[in-house]
Design a protein around this nucleic acid. Structure first.
Length: 598
DNA sequence: TAGCCTCGAGTTCA
DNA sequence: CTCGAGGCTA
């Protein structure tokens, strides 16, 4: 083939790419195709043929959306502009406070806002790089830590609604100094696609996805892009930023809403149902947008978990800036979700201060009212039996009262491949044989690390010594055999803490000082800290008041004990048992050396 | 002895 | 906060 001919074919390839991209956009983004599927396929086949014959394959050619490369891991990549989260509010009052603070910070009396739905999907940064006057898909990154994300380019390329090239045109880049473009948006999976995928997975005997977000996230993190391609993911764009060669941001518009229009013309699906509004002090317009979104959320094809309001003026955005985690120029107004459905991934067993083994369900993380729930206690085996909870079950989770997650019930309709929760025979920490006491399993080993850790943590707890020490540090001190009981804690130097924890010099000496200072705690707190069974806050106070010091208490007869208000047979026996124990007596002798009020 | 009241213990996440 | 059980009173 002559050079001339080659050039001609290359031109045809370029034309075909542009034409296919155009029809791709009509079909996937606008959902308004101009040509039939057959005609589209014909164009694609022609392109494939030419590429094969000439070997000219442009990286942004539609044939490159699916490659056969199967990676073993994801590379890391830097975002050009950090991808942060948004502060969340759950009621009108909190929203009002936020808006007022923004107005105050900007010294404005009114504010233009852009209102959007908050998609329940996975955030994605798509980065384009200049090449011959147009911008070519360079890479796509997950959020990661906000600065560095995972490179999921191959998977992102299979998403038909992410353009592989962008033509800004001259009027958008008069200086010609834009080198990179970062488009941010949400990768979402439609509800009907989730259903379809789950039906297939059920047939194949693999676990179903519990919601569209998890499915989208899982699809984007596939090692084999051909799997991602079949998932029919969508990309909703909500931000576009431009950068020069040095990575400095270049502004070509003044308002976010103008950028939304620009993204539309660049063939992105922009955030559906966005609108702008102007507000002053009252947030009624925002409340209305929120209520509308709430009403229509079930009829939408995709999942949303609230709405987002963003300051429209980009200069105002700059002035507001961001914290370490959040942009200050945007707020998420989220729907209440007091319950959520999630999956029991596994059950682990924890050892408490008293040796009682507690089963804890590990859950597929779900968000309830702003907190991500990963665990829920199952209390004991009677509880497990009464609710018939099994590993692999889908469960309804509620945040009981204020914070503590609770499994309300098993969704039996969703039960698939499940496994019974088996009672452990041995302590998960020290492997000692467990003893059964009613519905409880108990570790009898006095040296059990987890028990020692829990006892020390209790000793320093708020109502006892009131020392702010993390159980992580205690755990390391015990496991490295640096301490074996609370008395040893008073002999540690600041440097000992630095060794085990991620503590700086300052926090280490602070911790040291507060432990030393706790030598002066009152007798009732010491008594509580000892953790005598059935002796809690209240009983420690009455006992301390009556007996004044530990020797009086140890020498007290049964009759003297029960004469104390609130102490009956059981509690008195428990106290006598506690002081009979040789280990406990030794500990108390040692404590006399370090505590001032014992 | 029944029943109310109070206390202890375990519990999660930001 | 909740559950379960001990203490106390009628």
């Amino acid at each position: 083939m002559s050079v001339d001919q080659n050039k001609k074919v290359e031109q045809e390839i370029e034309k075909l790419i542009e034409l296919i991209n155009y029809h791709n956009w009509r079909y996937y983004v606008l959902q308004d195709p101009e040509i039939s599927d057959e005609e589209y396929d014909a164009l694609l086949n022609r392109l494939k043929k030419l590429e094969k014959e000439t070997g000219i394959i442009k990286s942004y050619s539609p044939t490159q959306r699916i490659t056969n490369v199967i990676s073993t891991e994801f590379k890391k990549g830097n975002h050009l502009f950090p991808v942060l989260s948004l502060e969340a509010v759950y009621d009108k009052k909190k929203l009002e406070e936020y808006i007022k603070s923004v107005l105050r910070n900007l010294k404005q009396s009114e504010l233009g806002l852009l209102c959007e739905l908050k998609f329940d999907g996975v955030s994605l940064s798509v980065i384009y790089k200049r090449n011959d006057g147009i911008f070519i898909f360079d890479k796509a990154l997950t959020r990661g830590d906000g600065l560095i994300g995972e490179d999921v380019s191959l998977n992102a390329k299979t998403i038909k609604t992410i353009p592989l090239s962008i033509d800004l045109g001259n009027d958008n880049d008069t200086e010609g100094d834009i080198e990179f473009i970062q488009v941010n948006g949400e990768v979402v999976l439609y509800k009907n696609d989730l259903q379809r995928i789950n039906e297939e997975r059920k047939k194949e005997g693999v676990p179903e996805f519990s919601n569209t977000r998890n499915a989208a996230s899982g699809s984007l993190r596939q090692l084999d892009p051909s799997v991602t391609a079949k998932r029919n993911l969508k990309f909703f764009a909500y931000s576009i930023r431009f950068f020069d060669r040095e990575g400095k941001e270049v502004r070509i518009r003044k308002k976010l809403s103008e950028l939304f229009e620009l993204m539309k013309s660049l063939r992105f699906i922009v955030s559906p149902f966005f609108k702008t509004c102007k507000i002053e002090q009252d947030v009624d317009a925002l409340q209305e947008y929120y209520e509308n979104a709430f009403e229509m959320k079930d009829s939408l094809e995709f999942d949303i978990d609230g709405v987002v309001f963003k300051v429209d003026d980009l200069e105002f955005q700059d002035r507001l800036g961001s914290t370490l985690k959040n942009y200050k120029w945007a707020i998420a107004y989220k729907f209440h979700t007091s319950i959520a459905i999630t999956k029991v991934i596994d059950v682990v067993f924890e050892v408490g201060r008293t040796g009682v083994i507690t089963p804890v369900a590990l859950l597929e993380p779900v968000e309830i009212e702003g907190a991500v729930i990963k665990n829920a206690t199952l209390h004991n085996f009677d509880y497990i039996k009464s609710k018939d909870i099994r590993i692999g079950d889908y469960v309804e989770v509620r945040r009981a009262g204020k914070v503590i997650p609770e499994i309300v019930k098993v969704i039996k309709e969703l039960r698939g491949d499940v496994r019974e929760i088996e009672e452990p025979k041995f302590c998960p920490s020290c492997k000692a044989e467990l003893i059964k006491d009613g519905p409880f399993l108990i570790c009898p080993n006095k040296q059990c690390f987890e028990k020692i850790i829990a006892k020390i943590v209790h000793w320093f707890s708020k109502d006892a010594m009131d020392v702010d020490i993390s159980d992580g540090i205690v755990s390391k001190l015990v496991k490295n055999r640096i301490v074996k009981d609370v008395v040893d804690m008073y002999d540690l130097r600041p440097s000992d803490f630095a060794v085990v924890g991620n503590l700086g010099k300052k926090s280490a000496s602070k911790l040291y000082n507060s432990i030393q200072e706790s030598r002066n705690r009152s007798f009732d707190r010491i008594l509580y800290g000892l953790g005598i069974p059935m002796v809690g806050l209240r009983n420690s106070k009455s006992l301390a008041q009556k007996f004044k010091n530990i020797d009086n208490l140890m020498n007290a007869s049964f009759a003297e004990l029960v004469s104390v208000e609130g102490i009956g047979n059981e509690v008195a026996n428990s106290i006598i048992q506690f002081f009979k124990d040789e280990e406990n007596r030794k500990l108390i002798e040692r404590l006399k050396r370090v505590m001032n009020n014992i």
